[in-house]
Simulated scan of single mutants.
Amino acid sequence: MNARLPRPAPKRRPKAAWRQAKGGAAFKAGHAAEWVAALWLMFKGYQVLGFRLKTRSGEIDLLARRGRILAVVEVKRRTSLNAALLALKPTQHDRLIAAGEAVRRNRPALQPLDLRIDMVALAPGRFPRHLRGVQRHGGG
């Protein structure tokens, strides 16, 4: 009788130190960009309700309210404002809508508000750019 022994699970190699440092730096830069965006929105009269809200549909960078608008805000930081403005892909836009609907559905006080997808684009040496009511573009 040939009994097969289970194969040992493959060993996972630890990330290279430089890759971990790069990932940590990107995480910190992204977090800093979200704070800059939040301050910019507060300066413009928005009430920031949450940072990095996780839902089954995806993560919301910022959730903000102004009047009857509930804004799901995606923060994009790139080397140029144009690159940041082009960074929101259609599939991500769809996920943001689904995530915003999930948050609104689970919080009764937010249910009467109108959901909108906004974006704050950031680039070195430039003022933040807030785009309200970002539409889905392209396919995929």
Rank of each mutant, 00 (worst) to 15 (best):
M1E: 13
A3E: 15
R4S: 15
K11T: 11
K11L: 08
K11E: 14
R12N: 08
R12H: 09
R13I: 01
P14Q: 10
P14H: 06
A16Q: 08
A16E: 09
A21H: 05
A21K: 09
K22G: 00
G23I: 02
A25E: 09
A26Q: 11
F27I: 01
A29W: 00
G30N: 08
A33I: 02
E34Y: 01
W35D: 15
V36I: 11
A38I: 00
A38R: 06
A38C: 06
L39A: 14
F43Y: 08
Y46E: 02
Y46C: 01
Q47S: 10
L49S: 03
G50V: 04
F51W: 13
F51Y: 15
F51R: 10
R52F: 00
L53K: 12
R56N: 12
S57Q: 12
S57Y: 12
E59T: 07
E59Y: 06
I60C: 13
I60F: 04
D61G: 09
L62R: 13
A64T: 03
A64F: 04
R65H: 05
R65G: 02
I69R: 12
I69L: 13
L70T: 05
L70A: 13
A71I: 04
V72C: 11
V72R: 12
E74Y: 00
V75R: 03
R77A: 15
R77V: 07
R77G: 13
R78S: 09
R78L: 05
S80E: 11
S80W: 01
L81G: 06
N82Q: 11
N82G: 01
A84I: 03
L86P: 01
L86N: 13
L86R: 13
A87H: 05
A87V: 01
P90C: 08
P90S: 10
T91E: 14
Q92C: 02
Q92P: 06
H93L: 06
D94Y: 00
R95M: 10
L96D: 10
A98E: 14
A98M: 05
A98H: 08
A99Q: 12
G100L: 01
A102W: 01
V103N: 13
R105Q: 13
R105M: 04
N106H: 11
N106A: 15
N106K: 09
R107Y: 04
R107F: 04
P108E: 14
L110I: 01
L110W: 08
P112T: 06
L115K: 00
L115T: 03
L115S: 07
R116C: 12
R116N: 04
L122N: 02
A123N: 07
R126Y: 02
F127H: 07
P128D: 08
H130E: 05
R132T: 02
R132N: 01
G133V: 01
R136H: 07
R136K: 14
R136D: 02
G139E: 14
G139Y: 03
